[in-house]
Design a protein around this nucleic acid. Structure first.
Lengths: 193, 193
DNA sequence: GCAGGTTTATTGATTGGTCAATCAACAAAA
DNA sequence: TTTTGTTGATTGACCAATCAATAAACCTGC
């Protein structure tokens, strides 16, 4: 029953299944077989399309980052004044799409991977730089020369709140997390005035 | 050549070797054999003393937290005014003892583990609560009712800066990291006055 | 339109390797 | 002779990656 043009469909299914399995296992200790089964195919086919397990993880993480990037662009598009842009960036990190068990698990494992795998480190660096750069641009009009330092602080705060909320007790609450970071930014901006 | 009273020595050697191996591998994918070899014994002996690989990881993490805890108490002892106490807590998270490749690797893997293993989650919760609680007490005199919120912000900032510094380019710089968090706290306190 | 070759899709079975955990056995102390 | 320390060898399981084989769809040139 081979239909042609399956490649993109299969790749997509595998990427989603990879994220789901990482989420379920809470670690990268997931077998290709399990991922493939969840995606409705044999493990051999998964290897056929991705070549290796590592390549699958990387592709999955690129997908997570792509979704997050889209979220950021979407949020920025509807924000007009500088402060709104900064708040949009903060909130984009905590939307239900990005801030849920599965994706959080992927991120945590991604951090671990970034310590040793150069490609993972590169991918992570792109995310980190982009967040700071976006925040810096957004804050420039209100913070001037201090925008960069402020941006780095907010970026750190985003990651820290993400981590604490993700690993704290109970369901992760993106709304509360975003409010917390926004509150701090507000206070910091207050100092400038 | 069996000498008596080896147990604590062996356990200690294994715990240190575990941290070293995790640091070298950048993940929990280290074999008991490698750890045991580094600690100068057979893998069978490692199992004899710890029972399982997981138990070794947990013991290693408890050790990391114990060292960190000692560092905190030491720093608090020599700080007298509230602000100094808060700064001492911040700096304790970034001392060379705790803020170096090996230990950072252990922490990142610990985060991953805490998602699924109840004992790891419990251990992490203890650390998280203690940091907030210590900060709250330190800040109470200067921040009053707002101490708790301030403490949570600082705690998140500590974790976030830790993460970004740990995974950023170049060697992790604890001094710079601590300065950054202290600066933010300073600014926040400025708002109150 | 269709025989035969090519590409794409797909899998079951196999290979080669790794590793946690156990065990039997030996050795020194108490 | 019981307790403590210690190891080499083994067991049992798991798994990434490869391969041989099957089959549908597409593509010629006639």
């Amino acid at each position: 029953m081979p239909k042609l043009g399956m490649e993109p469909i299969r790749r997509d299914a595998l990427i989603k299944a990879t994220i789901a399995e990482i989420g379920a296992a809470g670690s990268l200790d997931v077998t290709v077989s399990r991922i493939a089964r969840r995606a409705g195919m044999s493990s051999a086919l998964a290897h056929h399309y991705f070549g290796s397990k590592d390549a699958m993880f990387l592709a999955a993480m690129r997908h997570v980052l792509a979704v997050y990037g889209a979220e950021v662009r979407g949020a920025l598009a509807v924000a007009d004044d500088p402060e709104a842009r900064a708040r949009a960036l903060i909130r984009a990190s905590f939307t239900p799409t990005s801030f849920r068990r599965e994706v959080i698990a992927a991120w945590l494992n991604f951090y671990v991977l970034a310590q040793t795998r150069a490609d993972a480190a590169r991918l992570l660096a792109v995310y980190q730089r982009r967040l700071v750069s976006n925040l810096t641009h957004a804050l420039r009009p209100v913070a001037g020369a201090g925008a960069r330092a402020l941006a780095e602080g907010v970026a750190a705060m985003v990651d820290g709140v993400y981590l604490r909320e993700a690993l704290g007790a109970g369901e992760p609450d993106g709304r509360a997390a975003a409010r917390m970071v926004e509150g701090w930014l507000q206070a910091q901006l207050g100092v400038l005035k």
